[in-house]
Design a protein around this nucleic acid. Structure first.
Lengths: 190, 190
DNA sequence: ACTTGTTATTAACCAATGGTCAATAAAAGG
DNA sequence: CCTTTTATTGACCATTGGTTAATAACAAGT
């Protein structure tokens, strides 16, 4: 009722992100509304707009965090103790694993096309790809053509794009993923 | 004004499809509204619902036609005079070509996930894949594992999924497409 | 021609959605 | 205690997909 809540109940970016994230992870960008988030927060949907410019910016803030985790994961893998061809295999698998275990995030980062999210996610996606490409190239036996690394990425992307929505997590598509990664490696080494 | 138009101005499924198609091809499923179609038709948006159950059904009717063209294209290719490895190459290229020259259709058929379109496009997409798989398998030198054919499809899908929205048509991505197809063939033959 | 029944269309309606904004009460600072 | 800043509300907007009662145009029967 009152136009401002008492200090202990005030909204913060963090509390909004927390609640938004759970809904987002469950249902994806399109399916959840600012009003449904507000409802769970116990505030009016207008209040959220005080903390975030719009829906896209709110969701990008979520996505950002997870994608820096992906980047870390790639970096860790490359510095691990395994031999290079094992590492290469792991990189490819981990990319798929990330995509299927963070489907909403993956969607915004690599699939949403209209102007909504765009310029933000564009550069971030690019950064993730750069990291991927660099990693793959440094791990491969022979000097790879960059265009082949790009093809490998697109092939991974196809896998995630397809299975997203059909499976709930990586585990459910693990066998297919392993086989697909082997296919890609054949393409890289062939 | 009047609750029914004179005979010569009456709507038909065909006239609706025709106008809807042009908007659809230009902007895609999400971006165009029943009202914008109605506006171009010079009728109220309610009238369209007399001819089509809902937006999904209307757009599926468009998509259906184009996808039967894809299926024909695959069939023609397999019966052409070229040798098998050329045919295989052509099949893969043609799939990408179709996807990038019919981006809206491809989107509905292979990418839209929410319940809207679903069961309709699901079976049609499956049919298209079956045809693709069968064709690829019959053209390959060695007996392919079906899982590799699936990987090849996913790799193509990744290409189309990515370039959709960045290019307007196949021509603009032709070089990349050719290289990607070679990558896939290495995976199949490797 | 008149009557009757069918059919295609409209316009008003509904519930959501993303987004904006004046009003305002709580907090912070002097 | 007064003033300014700040966070929130709730009413509003335009737009969307979809439904439905009312009704004019049509076709058929006589």
């Amino acid at each position: 009722m009152s136009p401002r809540k008492t200090a202990s109940q005030e909204l913060t970016r963090e509390i909004i992100l927390e609640k938004a994230r759970t809904q987002f992870v469950e249902k994806g960008f399109q399916q959840i509304s600012m009003r449904s988030i507000a409802k769970q927060l116990g505030c009016s949907h207008g209040a959220i707009y005080y903390h975030f410019k719009n829906k896209a910016e709110l969701f990008y803030a979520i996505v950002e965090v997870d994608f820096s985790k992906l980047n870390n994961l790639l970096e860790e893998t490359i510095q691990g103790p395994e031999d290079d061809s094992t590492k290469l295999y792991n990189i490819l698998i981990h990319f798929i694993e990330f995509g299927l275990n963070h489907q909403g995030q993956y969607e915004i980062m690599f699939m949403v096309r209209n102007t909504e999210v765009d310029s933000l996610s564009q550069t971030a996606a690019n950064h993730s790809y750069q990291m991927f490409a660099q990693t793959v190239q440094s791990l491969s036996k022979k000097k790879l053509k960059i265009i082949d690394v790009w093809s490998a990425f697109l092939a991974l992307h196809g896998f995630v794009s397809h299975y997203r929505g059909y499976v709930d997590n990586f585990e459910e598509a693990k066998l297919a993923a392993e086989s697909h990664v082997n296919f890609i490696i054949k393409g890289l080494n062939g």
